[in-house]
């Protein structure tokens, strides 16, 4: 398989931006933690992979069309669309009601994993890039200040609840993710239907999340209850799972994290289309979709190798889905004795 040239360029740009961010964010590497170098490599690989794949994906004809139309729609009524954005982000991306309506259990599990991952990413990536670090405040051994790059922000007491939360953020994230992973696994194992449509990637993603979370928690176990025994070995194992996990990101199921925001574009696209004229079925004469979307499809279809043009003029794609089914039945019945 040959690499896509534009994808590679975009990937390299992504890597460069990440490195620049690290360099600048860590105040010219002053705050860069060399112990996290492995993580940085993993992250850079992930950035390259994700950006590369995204760049290839976004140029597929239907994706490119939707991307263009989504932005067109967004710009068309910018004020309204910007105003709608926060609630769209909340419902479509954060609270994920569309999963809840499908299945409450599945939604609960997904929320656990989702927020666990968000939390972990918010801690890990800035730490890795050196964007975030902690300093003790003066000589007080149990008081710390959070630094974002060079800028000191809030201070907290290590023994306080807040402090506990800060230092155990990754443990909390791991527990959330593990709980979600267990619910997912239980569903999959109990439901023959889910098992049947299982793709190997589905289990791999769960296994990866499991490994990262468990090895991370072991670090805490080691330092808290085992006086730090096995810590360095565990640390290496954890680092390995995280790095492998990061490297898996562009390839597997988790890539949906980067695709999903496209849903917002779809929402804007559909809203704009609803305000435009409808497509009218060439057979029954009823409106069945937006004229814009049907026109867009007629443009995309030849690009992906289809010719639904009719010899007498017009396009098969101007038939509504119901009439397609009906017409097929009539045509078939005509070829088995003609009743109907």
């Amino acid at each position: 398989m040959s690499l896509d040239r534009r994808g590679v360029i975009w990937g390299l740009v992504g890597v460069a931006v990440t490195l620049a961010l690290t360099f600048l964010g860590s105040d010219r590497l002053v705050w860069f933690d060399a112990a996290l170098l492995g993580y940085l490599f993993g992250l850079i690989f992930a950035v390259f992979g994700v950006v590369y794949r995204y760049a290839v994906w976004i140029r597929r004809p239907p994706t490119a069309m939707l991307n263009r139309r989504g932005w067109d729609a967004f710009r068309q009524r910018k004020a309204r669309n910007v105003a709608a954005l926060p609630s769209l982000v909340a419902t479509q991306l954060l609270t994920q009601g569309f999963i809840r309506r499908r299945s409450r259990t599945r939604w609960f599990a997904h929320q656990l994993v989702f927020w666990g991952c968000i939390l972990a990413a918010l801690v890990t990536f800035p730490l890795t890039l050196g964007l975030l670090h902690f300093e003790s405040v003066g000589q007080q051994a149990d008081r710390y200040q959070v630094f974002i790059s060079r800028v000191g922000t809030l201070r907290f007491d290590a023994a306080s609840t807040f402090g506990w939360l800060i230092f155990h953020a990754l443990d909390i994230a791991a527990v959330l993710v593990l709980a979600g992973v267990f619910i997912f696994l239980r569903r999959r194992l109990r439901d023959p239907g889910a098992m049947a449509v299982e793709r190997s990637g589905d289990f791999l993603a769960l296994a990866g999340l499991f490994a990262v979370s468990v090895t991370g928690l072991f670090l805490t176990v080691s330092s808290k209850w085992l006086e730090g025994r096995f810590y360095s070995a565990l640390n290496t194992i954890h680092a390995l799972t995280v790095i492998l996990g990061l490297m898996y990101l562009p390839f597997g199921k988790l890539f949906h994290i980067f695709q999903r925001p496209g849903n917002l574009g779809v929402v804007y696209y559909k809203r704009a289309n609803d305000e435009g004229p409808p497509a009218v079925c060439r057979r029954c004469g009823l409106a069945f979709a937006s004229a814009q979307q049907v026109a867009d499809l007629k443009e995309v279809l030849p690009q992906v190798g289809f010719d639904y043009g009719m010899d007498g003029g017009g396009n098969y794609q101007d038939t509504c889905p119901r009439c397609r089914r009906v017409q097929l039945t009539l045509a078939q019945s005509a070829r088995v004795g003609g009743f109907g």
Binding site: L286, F288, A289, C320, P321, R322
Partner: peptide
Amino acid sequence: RDLELHEGPS
């Protein structure tokens, strides 16, 4: 069943 069509994909 006809209604499914007229509601259409929205």
